[in-house]
Amino acid sequence: MDASTPSKPAAAELGRSLVIRNLRKEYRAGQPVLKDVSLTVEGRGMTAIIGPSGTGKSTLIRCINRLVDPTAGEILFRGQDLARLNGRELRIARRRMGMVFQEYNLVERLSVIENVLCGRLGYVPVWRAWLRKFPAQDVDRAFHLLDAVGLGDFATQRADQLSGGQRQRVGIARALMQEPDLLLADEPTSSLDPKTSVEIMELIARRAGERDIPVIVNIHNVDLARRFADRIVGMSKGEIVFDGPPQALEDARLLQIYGGEGWLE
């Protein structure tokens, strides 16, 4: 028995909380983008990660669902260390984590409803995807989710015919289609106009809130973070330099996160 390995915590006990320990990522050896980041995210509410571009926010979020492979560290979720998973186990872990992307990442040549059903690909066998024979309750739920994001009439249109805001709504529906225990959002509003950005954040907060899904969101817009998040994590140069409720995010703290001065007027 190796005493240094942490004992596997019971899944039920941990619930939906996410524990990141000493997470390190080096794209080039010796140049860490994430410097031993540790972070615990409770299984409820919205956590916003803010910080300058290139500070490792995206890398952090992508390490969680392993679109990026971490160099070292642990990511504990539902009793598993996500950083160690591979193959089938990784796929099964991924299907419990929905992701919303900055550039929406819809499959352009598929219809809206097909894109939403992509959220079920981790659950359905290959032949169902091939023949588009998704289970009836999945199809019903997909239509229901499209109604919920306000795109019920667009189901059979091709994704490349939609506007940016509409595409992101489809992206949200796709992520929720996974019935996730955790929703990751990587700059979901950066490609959108200010009004649409607020609408998209509202949609994420409301739909995740009513399903009680915890959300981790990377966001450039500090005002949006203050408005929607229950907790704000500030990152700078690969490290966490602020962690607290929105009210605690004073100007001095912002200067500490983003550096410089004069821009905060």
Binding site: R91, V107, G171
Partner: peptide, 14 residues
Amino acid sequence: QVEAVRAAGAPFLS
């Protein structure tokens, strides 16, 4: 687009 499908946990053929 591939990344999004991968993030949903799709098996390789899907």
